[in-house]
Design a protein around this nucleic acid. Structure first.
Lengths: 205, 205
DNA sequence: ACCGGATTGGACTGATCGGTCCAGTTGTGT
DNA sequence: ACACAACTGGACCGATCAGTCCAATCCGGT
């Protein structure tokens, strides 16, 4: 029953619904966001929604995919340029600056979705696990680059380090969002940077 | 209008409602948990709920207080015993083991509540910020002890380090819950431990 | 026994939820 | 111009939500 748009017009309608839902959900959460509210924001009607999505869960999955694409793509671009400690620190700074500019609202949309859905929507959980996986993968390729340049020890497990950094980012975002203090994120990221530097090659400096 | 129990019987009823709500909320989230569901689980009636709580938000605040007390108290007991790296590692191990025993469900109730409520319920956000604050404070006193014993450099900012460790714990729990893999938490905690060790006193060992 | 406040049961309400349905419009290929 | 599929508007439905209300019950003090 759920079909995907076959016209340019339909494609735009579908996208309007998804982006509206994404914007509302990242501010209110999935459960607190009503479909009528989404449709009002998107300027669409019930029949349009159910023309493209089987039910609310399908819309949520589309939102997850949209957020994953927009975030992971944006991060990938910045990670690709990092090949030094100062480059890494600069990226961390942009993350902190962005949160400060948002007054520490929202944090990471994927993290928020994961916290809300992991225990209640199994398919959403799998999607989100995949999102984290690709994000960690991109961090890993960046760490591999640092290792090649001799900034990390040759026996460094970049896969594990990538997940450790990702965890610290997510936790820092959560603390910043809860305390409304971007400093909490900055401290967490500084620690992540310090940890990575402690993996430098020679034990004797 | 909202009154607190003046009888032993009332006190037990109130507590039954709070604990039932806490158990349901940590599994489903606040928005997805209906009051009728809470009352069914607690074996209580509507009038009993509204006899002790002004509205749902008041109940949620009570749940936050209850979770804060039970978690922070439990953690404090274990943190008080840590005075070495092996002690710290042992605590980390118990965290990982507990998550594994729960099949990585729930994670940290306070973290989940924070993720859901920080942007929608201002008073709840402040309560949760306070919870994180006291938790971080306990971590800080433990780090102070390590610093006194000479395991951390004398110029270590234990306050900041405490928040960094807390962030890593929260992020690790989120990743573990999302991927259903306790290894994600273990990796994060190992990194946190590595970071702290990198703050050891003398640069030349 | 009895009084008064504390406590309890559960029917009820209006609003809102996700989801269904169908008649109408739009756009495109011929 | 015609046909047909794609798309759209919005009334409507049953379920469920938080919250209200009142009569009944419990129980310690006297």
């Amino acid at each position: 029953m759920p079909e995907e748009p076959k016209t340019e017009r339909g494609r735009r309608t579908r996208e309007r619904i998804v982006t509206s839902a994404a914007r509302l959900i990242e501010r209110q959460g999935v459960e607190a966001t009503g479909l009528d509210q989404v449709l009002a924001e998107a300027g669409a009607s019930k029949s349009q929604l159910y023309h493209y999505f089987a039910d609310k869960q399908a819309l949520v999955r589309a939102v997850i995919a949209w957020q994953t694409a927009s975030i992971v793509d944006g991060v990938a671009e910045q990670l690709a340029r990092i090949d030094s400690w100062t480059g890494l620190d600069a990226w961390f700074d942009t993350l902190v600056a962005y949160q400060r500019s948002m007054d520490c609202h929202i944090g990471c949309p994927i993290g928020s979705l994961a916290a809300e859905l992991a225990d209640t929507d199994e398919t959403a959980r799998q999607d989100l696990a995949l999102s984290f996986g690709t994000w960690a993968g991109q961090l890993r390729t960046m760490l591999d680059r640092l290792r090649e340049r001799g900034l990390l020890g040759p026996d460094t497990d970049t896969e594990q380090s990538a997940y450790a950094v990702l965890a610290t980012i997510q936790g820092g975002l959560l603390l910043a969002k809860t305390t409304r203090d971007p400093e909490r994120l900055r401290v967490a990221l500084t620690a992540a940077g310090g940890y990575l530097r402690s993996l430098a090659p020679a034990p004797g400096r």
